[in-house]
Amino acid sequence: MDTEPRQTAIFAKGLRKAFKDKVVLDGIDLDVPRGTIFALLGPNGAGKTTAVRILSTLLRADGGEARIAGCDLVKDADGVRRAIGVTGQYSAVDGLLTGRENLIMVADLHHLGKETARRVADALLERFDLLDAARKQVSTYSGGMRRRLDLAMTLVGDPRIVFLDEPTTGLDPRSRRTMWEIIQGLARGGVTIFLTTQYLEEADRLADRIAVLDGGRLVAEGTSEELKRLVPGGHVRLRFADLAALDAAARTLGVVTRHDDALALQVPSDGGVRSLRALLGRLEDAAVEVEEMSVHTPDLDDVFLALTGRPEKNEKVASK
């Protein structure tokens, strides 16, 4: 591709894939610069795993083209494989071997040589906090340990580009945090990360750029700040002791959204201190007691819901 810049690690144009007559990917364009973290965000069944499987040479696309580290996905699959490491959703570890044996096996497949293989394995065991379990069979590992070993095996060959398919799904909060730190560490070392997630918090926290995948199409792409700008601003939610106070407040503030069941009002606001003070001042002048106040700035959840077209359902429930 002539339009592909030098600094691009992952480039795709018009990727399409259908299973029988079910279209899973419907024309995906990607351009992930080297050394960045890219998150593909989407609900279950959006096509995230299919995208990763195609980009990591596991699955052939029906149409479109892609280059990974400058190698064509189809014409130079082994070139792609030499540049990438993949950690799928289902752990690709050998449960009958020990953690150390797993790492040495992968090192052998990279033809590192006996000495180097052992050294690399031990270094990774230490880096991923698996030294204590190094000689235990992987079938005895916890979910978090398996995931760490899986990623460690992916890193044996020092891949320049790492694909992570839902790396933290099913992990407890502490393991998830550890995984995030590991991913950030890799990116600092210059590795390009392509991860999929259904957690907005994860994309928000890790990714330089986020693409939202829904129904096989990328419905938005940008930094998390850019995406947040796509949805209308935030609001303040005020709760009152009784209906009389709610009515008084509604009269005072003018156009607001009422939730009578919850005795709450929703007032558009930028969430800044000055506007909050002004809002509370007006209520105080009108002698209305506020029971409780909460400030909502738009987060990726709002973006996600707005983009993937599922907010109506939620609103219907809320306003009933």
Partner: peptide, 13 residues
């Protein structure tokens, strides 16, 4: 039927 074969397939072996 397990994930390990996918690991082998994404390696240049």
């Amino acid at each position: 039927t397990e994930g390990i074969v996918d690991r082998f397939r994404t390696m240049a072996i």
